[in-house]
């Protein structure tokens, strides 16, 4: 707001008034004590209590989890922090079900992210064509995002029902009955069925992010592209979509992190044993830790999940930080 006022009235100086004369004397910097120290002390009561909660529950717990993964704690006893080793991680490497879950997690991560981004972008572009009832359409497309995974998993288990489910009924209705499948029991399809359902739920989120990106592009650019004679498709491909990189990045990060922790939906659909075709790390972690009380082993899987998430978010946050956009 203030910045725009500045722009309107061009001449204003205000904060831009920080003089930058060259060759000024460089002083050994005694940092200005008064204002900053005072402000620091005064800011403490505001952020320290929440920071303590986050520090304890998020960062403390992550550290603790790593520690537990180094023990061989299982069953009803207590973890023994006396002897720490990497035996759980060694066990991971040779565990076929871990390798399957790891592979499935990566497939889910890539396919789900790409599908949601593409559908979300397409929907956002359609919505951004200056349509009527825009709010109504947007509300419908984002609706699945407001539902619990427990709820959507129940809907989709019905959708995928081989006899009377909507998907197979629809295929039969349009004459493609041969394609009707046992979507969530056939190992060939169950992971893709999950990805499709999750795409249904998350593409609305991508639409919101892309729509914000599209709205940030000045209308002059659309008009300029039209005047230059570009077709609508070319205009989007050459002018508009390249400018949505920031939206794509931030949406992709959120989707990938979600793919790593996706649990509720699979758990409701399959319980804690989706089978090797659809097992993913987050479900396997739960199964190992909470169903078979292999606590240390579960923690090791959780640490792998955390490392994967860190691999996704650390570069993103670093770039955001460098751009001063935090």
């Amino acid at each position: 707001m203030r910045r725009s006022i500045r722009r309107l009235f061009g001449g204003g100086s205000g904060n831009s008034d920080d003089a930058r004369p060259d060759g000024g004397t460089v002083t050994t910097g005694r940092k200005s004590a008064l204002a900053l120290d005072g402000e620091f002390v005064q800011s403490l009561p505001f952020w320290v209590p929440p920071a303590l909660l986050v520090g304890l529950f998020v960062y403390g717990a992550i550290g603790w989890n790593v520690l537990i993964s180094l023990t061989d704690w299982s069953g009803l006893g207590q973890p023994d922090y006396g002897s720490l080793d990497l035996s759980m991680y060694a066990r991971l490497v040779s565990d076929q079900s871990f390798i399957a879950a790891f592979r499935n997690t990566l497939v889910l991560l890539v396919a789900f992210t790409l599908a949601s981004l593409l559908v979300g972008l397409a929907v956002a572009i359609l919505i951004d064509r200056g349509i009527r009832f825009e709010n109504g359409f947007r509300t419908v497309y984002l609706l699945p995002m407001s539902l619990s995974f427990v709820v959507t998993a129940i809907f989709w288990s019905w959708m995928y029902n081989p006899q009377v489910g909507v998907i197979n009924e629809f295929l039969r209705a349009v004459g493609l009955g041969a394609l009707a499948q046992q979507w969530i029991s056939d190992p060939r399809f169950k992971l893709w069925a999950v990805i499709f359902a999750l795409m249904w739920q998350f593409s609305g989120y991508c639409m919101v992010v892309y729509l914000a990106g599209l709205r940030a592009i000045p209308t002059e650019q659309y008009e300029a592209a039209k005047v230059d004679g570009a077709s609508t498709v070319r205009m989007y491909r050459r002018v508009i979509i390249p400018q949505l990189r920031a939206s794509t990045t931030s949406a992709a990060v959120v989707l990938m992190v979600f793919a790593l922790k996706a649990f509720d939906f699979l758990f409701v659909l399959f319980g804690d044993t989706p089978g090797p075709a659809a097992d993913i790390l987050s479900v396997m972690m739960f199964r190992e830790a909470f169903s078979t009380t292999n606590w240390a082993y579960g923690s090791a899987i959780a640490t792998v999940l955390f490392a994967l998430a860190l691999g996704v978010i650390a570069p993103y946050l670093f770039v955001q930080y460098r751009r001063g956009e935090l």
């Binding site: 205000g14 831009s16 008034d17 920080d18 200005s32 008064l34």
Partner: peptide
């Protein structure tokens, strides 16, 4: 002119900026 330090001077008088020397 812009950037001459006039606003900074004023803000030091106000106490919104600390005085270096």
């Amino acid at each position: 002119p812009s950037g001459c330090g006039k606003s900074t001077t004023l803000r030091m008088i106000a106490g919104l900026e600390s005085v270096t020397r």
